[in-house]
Simulated assay, not measured.
Amino acid sequence: MSSSPHIRSKVTSSNIMLYVTIALLPASAFGVWNFGVSALVMLICTTASAVLTEYIYEKLMHKKITINDYSAVVTGLLLGLNMPASAPWWMGVLGGIFAILIVKQLFGGLGQNFMNPALGARCFLLISFTSQMTTFIYDGVTGPTPLAQLKSGEMVDSMSMLIGRIPGTIGETSVIAIVVGAIFLILMGIIDLRIPGTYIATFVVFIGIFGHFANPDVGFFDPQYITAHLCGGGLMLGAWFMATDYVTSPITKKGQLVYGALLGILTGLFRLFGGSAEGVSYAIIISNLLVPLIERVTLPKPFGKGGEK
């Protein structure tokens, strides 16, 4: 809790989560249109398992049933959007159970989880089922994502990446659909530009400077290379919908700027110099773990304290 004064608001957790759910619908609809029925099945499995796990756990533990706050819906939907459409349905169910039971409920429920539950579950699935989680089928053909092509030095079509006609996870492919949802959240006052703006700006600077060292054929601040990195992978989905999670991001304004810059640097490091072409999930989780430290060093001093002598 931040220091006083506090301002009471009529906005509730259920209102916020409902708005986030609505904002995720464009990316969800495009993912189903792009990848077919298998994407819809995956989204249903992850969302249903998340909601059902929360209900059963709270029922068994004799706690207040909180599934009507939509937080489990958001977690399940985000997990589904971070899954390949080609992954088996039971993997989505397992991920939904892990996200709610292990990452959320065992640490106290909504407001107490130490990392984003959806990303925690995705990383768990990536470690446990690497092959299925990194296999992408598009138009009946199994192939690498544009980021993997970019990392290997191949050319990519940035316009296709912007529109979303590319292989990838269900919700990360269309930048346009993601931005539409993000604009809705901004207009409704659910998020602001501080975290995603700092994240994206820092990432652009990092890729612009160090992209040449990872790929000598790329010049400093190469527009096409930077655009491809911005449109590829889970950067946009992570920046607007997961890095801005209230529970796992700093509450201080300066802390949010530090947090966003850290996300940009880590994502750039993982993408350019790591073994994988992606890095958003691990960047956000590591930054989540550092939030208490970030808040400690950026907490405003109480009025009248700490003045110069």
Rank of each mutant, 00 (worst) to 15 (best):
G168Q: 11
A201L: 15
V205R: 03
E172M: 04
K104H: 09
G189S: 13
F203G: 05
L125N: 03
T145C: 09
I100V: 14
V204A: 08
S128T: 15
F124G: 01
G189Y: 10
T135R: 06
I183W: 11
S131H: 12
R165M: 04
Y138G: 02
L162D: 07
I176Y: 06
I186R: 07
L110Q: 03
N116M: 11
A99S: 08
I190Y: 11
L101C: 07
V141K: 14
V156Y: 05
G211A: 07
N113S: 08
V103Q: 01
I176M: 09
F184G: 05
L101K: 14
G211C: 11
I170C: 00
I127N: 04
L119A: 01
R194V: 12
I102H: 01
A182S: 08
L150F: 13
G109D: 11
I97K: 00
V205A: 14
Y199W: 08
I178P: 01
V205M: 12
C123T: 15
I183S: 08
L193W: 15
T145D: 13
T130W: 15
Q105A: 03
P144C: 08
L147K: 06
I186A: 12
Y138C: 00
I190H: 10
P196G: 09
R194E: 03
Q105W: 00
E172G: 02
T169K: 03
V156N: 04
K151W: 08
T130M: 07
D139Y: 11
S160Y: 07
I207L: 06
G181I: 01
L94C: 08
F136P: 02
F98H: 04
S131E: 15
Q105F: 01
S152R: 10
I207D: 02
G153E: 07
Q105Y: 00
P146V: 07
T202G: 10
A148D: 13
L162P: 10
T198K: 03
P167G: 06
I191M: 02
T202W: 12
F184W: 12
R194Y: 05
I195S: 05
I166S: 11
M159N: 13
G211K: 02
L125R: 10
L187Q: 09
P146D: 13
A118R: 02
L94M: 12
I200T: 02
S128E: 04
A148N: 06
M133P: 03
T202A: 13
I127H: 06
V204Y: 03
Q112N: 14
T198L: 09
G143T: 15
C123Y: 14
S160P: 05
G109S: 12
F203S: 04
I163T: 10
I190F: 09
T202R: 07
F129C: 09
T135Q: 10
G153N: 11
L150C: 14
E154L: 11
L119M: 14
G108F: 06
D139W: 09
G208Q: 11
F203H: 12
I97Y: 02
L110P: 00
G111R: 15
Q112I: 00
T202M: 13
A177I: 00
L147S: 10
L187D: 00
I166N: 12
G164S: 02
F114C: 08
T145F: 09
D139E: 15
S128G: 12
I183F: 13
S174W: 05
E172S: 04
G164R: 00
V175Y: 04
M188V: 08
P117Q: 10
V180C: 14
P196W: 10
L125E: 08
F129V: 12
A148F: 05
S131Q: 13
L162H: 13
T202I: 12
G189H: 13
S131Y: 11
V175K: 00
I100E: 05
